[in-house]
Design a protein around this nucleic acid. Structure first.
Length: 524
RNA sequence: GGCCCGUUGGUCAAUCGGUUAAGACGCUUCCCUUUCACGGAAGAAUGAGGGGUUCGAUUCCCCUACGGGCUACCA
């Protein structure tokens, strides 16, 4: 076979937001193309006019964009095989459908939907399944059962018709799937699929084949739900004489719900407690909003990393992969055959890993923007200085999974507490500590260099002088400074806050908590 | 119902006939530690069942069970 430049495509239908399974399909197709120096295309399969949802196409493009999946060719970027929206290619497909009729591999069918529905119901009542195929087609209303003249009359008189594939009887249809190896089907089980609908639009079955060949696609990556119709597709390629141009199929395992049964579907939305969409989506019809990974605070790197690992593994112990590393290491050989149950917990872990790897300066600059936005700090406020924010970020990042938790979890770094964990205070507090804290304040104010290590040794010295174990008073000190009994490392926190702030907060805490301050003139 | 695909711990999974059956998430315990985390160490937990093939099966074949998908003029 001739070497062809690798070209893969992602071809969603714009019937709503793209869910994470779709993103994964796009991702694998993208990774494979890029690994082979090929092209990744985006084609919009909008042949079903009834299911078209406004905004869906834009959503799909924005989602891919957010994930860092770059479109080489297709809707929104153009290319030499434009247009890339199937509704705009309508006339192209008819030609091939007619060609199939001429060559005897397809036929016109005049049965109405109502008639077909009735037949299905009837079959169902008899505990059978109706199938429009070699066993039934000669009893139906189509160009095989009606004379040529009658067929022409019906068509020219404007009667509605579809074009159906004429599936041959009793042949074995085999093909090799990149992931599943050789798959074979008996043609008797393949129905005479509609190729061209009565509105003149092609069905998926015809359209994707015509486009894949015309757009020189070499590898068609799609979900496993397409496997049962693959034999029909193989047939169409061969009837059109396109065996050598047929892309190789890779049928991906499905993404399953975490709680048990069924594939992850769009309707799951937030019912399961996690987003199924990359981006937030507002349904234009119902006004309902579904949450998205982006809005929840996930990094696209983490989202992509997690998706890549749902069904694929590198065969090594490395788990954190950038897009470039994925491009280098991805392989269909390591794609699992079974469906993967999605695990929201692991997704959070991926985000945490990416957070820990983010440069402090980058985190600090975003934190600065958020602080400016959320609090009315003046521009020269020290809390907006990079050096201050970098220290805060270093303290906060190891105990958060999401960047957007920084302010919530570390608010006391920026704003003095007004409330205190009084339960912890009352448990720990002894009147004799008052003297200690007074001495501590004095000692701290005399510190030349207000850094963590100095603060710590100062603290311990004063404690020793009073015959207290540091542990007895440390927790109180923490609460005076932060209001909370849990939080970032204490002495580094004191350093970050600065000498004046530390002393001020301690005094403030004594006032707020109405703790007895030692009488300076008293006997001691 | 029919057809197709699949089945290693709770979850993601490695193994491509011979291993003490990796690793990760989650969980438990311990260490570090003022706390919460991070980090480190350890632990519990897996080949659906039954037949073959083979000196030897998680690995190859068959059956059963289970799971999933498809069965539209939707994709």
């Amino acid at each position: 076979m001739i070497e062809r430049k690798v070209r893969t495509r992602f071809a969603p239908s714009p019937t709503g937001p793209l869910h994470m399974g779709g993103v994964r399909t796009a991702l694998y197709a993208y990774l494979f193309a890029k690994q082979h120096g090929g092209d990744f295309l985006l084609r919009i399969e909008d042949t079903d006019q009834n299911r078209f949802v406004p905004g869906a196409e834009e959503y799909i493009i924005e989602s891919l964009n957010w994930c860092g999946i770059k479109i080489d060719e297709g809707v929104s970027v153009g290319g030499k095989f434009a247009p890339y929206r199937q509704s705009e290619r309508k006339e192209i497909y008819r030609k091939y459908a007619e060609q199939l009729v001429q060559s005897g591999h397809a036929y016109y069918a005049f049965d109405t939907s109502a008639e077909l529905d009735a037949m299905r119901k009837q079959a169902e009542a008899a505990k059978n399944a109706f199938s429009y195929d070699s066993t039934s087609r000669m009893k139906m209303n189509n160009s095989l059962t009606v004379s040529k003249e009658e067929t022409e009359r019906k068509i020219s008189s404007g009667e509605h018709y579809v074009i159906r594939l004429k599936v041959p009887e009793g042949t074995e249809i085999k093909f090799t799937d990149i992931i599943r190896g050789e798959v074979s089907f008996n043609s008797n089980l393949v129905d005479d699929k509609v190729l061209l609908k009565s509105d003149g639009m092609p069905t998926y079955h015809l359209a994707h084949i015509v486009d894949d060949v015309l757009m020189e696609i070499t590898h068609a990556v799609r979900g496993e739900e397409w496997l049962p119709s693959a034999p029909a597709h193989i047939l169409i390629y061969s009837f059109l004489g396109w065996e050598t141009q047929m892309p190789q199929y890779a049928h991906l395992p499905l993404l399953l719900k975490p709680d048990g049964n069924g594939k992850l579907s769009k309707r799951d939305g937030d019912k399961l407690g996690f987003p199924v969409f990359p981006l937030e989506w507002k349904d234009p019809a119902t006004g309902e909003t579904s949450s998205g990974y982006r809005e929840k605070g996930y990094y696209p790197e983490a989202f992509v990393n997690m998706l890549a690992f749902l069904g694929w593994n590198p065969g090594s112990e490395q788990e954190i992969f950038s897009m470039d590393e994925l491009i280098e290491k991805f392989s269909f050989a390591h794609v699992h055959k079974a469906g993967a149950r999605f695990d929201p917990e692991k997704t959070k872990w991926f985000n945490e890993q990416w957070l820990h790897r983010k440069p402090d300066a980058e985190l600090a600059s975003r934190l600065m923007a958020t602080l400016k936005n959320q609090f009315q700090f003046s521009d020269d406020d020290r809390r907006l200085s990079e050096s201050f924010l970098i220290k805060c970020v270093q303290l906060l990042k190891v105990r958060t999974q999401f960047e957007n938790e920084f302010i919530e979890k570390g608010k006391y770094l920026f704003i003095a507490p007004t409330q205190y964990d009084e339960q912890a205070i009352s448990k720990k507090w002894k009147p004799e500590f008052a003297t200690f804290f007074q001495q501590l304040a004095d000692a701290l104010s005399n510190l030349q260099s207000f850094v963590s290590s100095e603060i710590e040794s100062c603290f311990k010295e004063v404690a020793a002088k009073n015959n207290f174990k540091p542990g007895e008073v440390l927790q109180l000190f923490r609460i005076f400074l932060s209001g909370q009994s849990a939080g970032v490392d204490l002495f580094p926190m004191a350093e970050v806050l600065g000498k004046e702030e530390v002393i001020a907060r301690q005094n403030e805490a004594f006032l707020n908590l109405k703790l007895q301050t030692p009488n300076r003139d008293g006997n001691h």
